[in-house]
Amino acid sequence: MMNAFLRKIVLPVAVGAVALGFGIEVAIRDREPSDAIALFAVSLPDTQGTPQRLDQWRGKVLVVNFWATWCDPCREEMPQFVQAQREFGPKGLQFVGIAVDQRDKVIQFAKELGLNYPALIGGYDALELSKPLGNRLAALPFTIILDRDGHIAHTQLGPLKSGQLRSIVSNLL
């Protein structure tokens, strides 16, 4: 009786649901390469004024964080990024900040925080880069996490919770 129930109802439903889940996963992944390719092609100056292309970090688990000094919640979440970079950097994690800001402010804040990953400077135009990646309102902070293959594993508008960041990153490393 129980076996018949499993065979006729539970199994097809489970298989269907798994297929649907897989379909969603596939759909998400299908959307990603072009967006990620556009992101990898981005080149912005660092705090020294040297242009840096994002594709130099291909092959790493890459966390791209759009932020600004005028964004309080951005500044609040950044110490945990510094900590995560220190802890997971040797395992292949790379944070890159894209500051929608002025160079002098970025330099000052980076120094105060002890920023241990690159801060690229984009001005307000940089926000345009984040729109096709899901940042419809062009608000901050906005964070994209790419796996080692360059697929977008996670996008986040608003601060990442520490546990959330750890769990996403740990799964990808």
């Binding site: 600004a68 005028w70 964004c71 309080d72 919640p73 951005c74 609040e76 929608v100 307000y124 926000l127 309102l137 062009a138 608000a139 901050l140 902070p141 508008l157 608003g158 601060p159």
Partner: peptide, 13 residues
Amino acid sequence: SQGCADIGICYPP
């Protein structure tokens, strides 16, 4: 104008 939301996001000007 420039402002933020309590949920933890800020808008550009």
